[in-house]
Amino acid sequence: MKLWIAFWNILHKDMRTYYLKPPNISWGLIFPLAWTGMFFIKSGSALGSIQTLLPGVVAISILFGTTSMLAVTVTFEKKNRSFERLLLAPIPLEVLMLAKTGGAILFGVANAFVPVVMAVFLIDLSQVAWGAFIPAVFLIAVASTFLGLFIAVAVSEVFEAQTFSNFFRFPMIFLCGLFFPVEKLPVFLKPISYALPLTYGADVLHGAVHGGHAMPFSLDLALLSAFCVGLFVVSLHNIRRRWIV
């Protein structure tokens, strides 16, 4: 019960304090919407293209939203030393970091539904397999958040976190099958695609929205889950090594 009180209050404080910070607004909301607009215009503004664009837009909304949030909640707090207060609390590090990342995961999930809500007014989404779509959104949010955590722990300044995040985020837009199918990538790029968690999340989203997926949902979701666990474990290890020196 005591752990739950600490967990919820950390999560609640982060949501209350950081959701409307400028980096989250610009990278988490404006940037994905700008990308959506760009692809929509490029497709000749045809409403039919929205269905094929939607999975990619959802995925980058989550990716940019969560990674931006972590740069603020973790790197910023580490920089101004308020993170020390959390490290001094009698909470297992695993619980502490789940609480710190929980706000970003929820932010990512909320971001994912911004383009979905917009699409509801433009196209018919009754054929979407929500049973696959929602778990995929959740797992993409978790994996992206833990990727953000991995980056946030590796740097010491917020601007470094944003820059370092872009090193991962921009290639992922092109390599993970968000807007261009992985099968059509050059052979030498395919291994990189399959080494990135978003590839599996995007595959589920494409399958759920318009039926075009390369792998079974269960395999995609299992691999995505494995990435989540792996990134979290590595991040915890790095926190112990770098911050409890």
């Binding site: 005591k2 209050n9 304090t17 030393r81 308020s82 207060r85 009698p90 909470i91």
Partner: peptide, 20 residues
Amino acid sequence: NLYPELTGFDNLCFCAALHG
């Protein structure tokens, strides 16, 4: 090392919550 964007009262409540 408290939180600049929280009030004094909220900072204390948050620190108390960390201890359950």
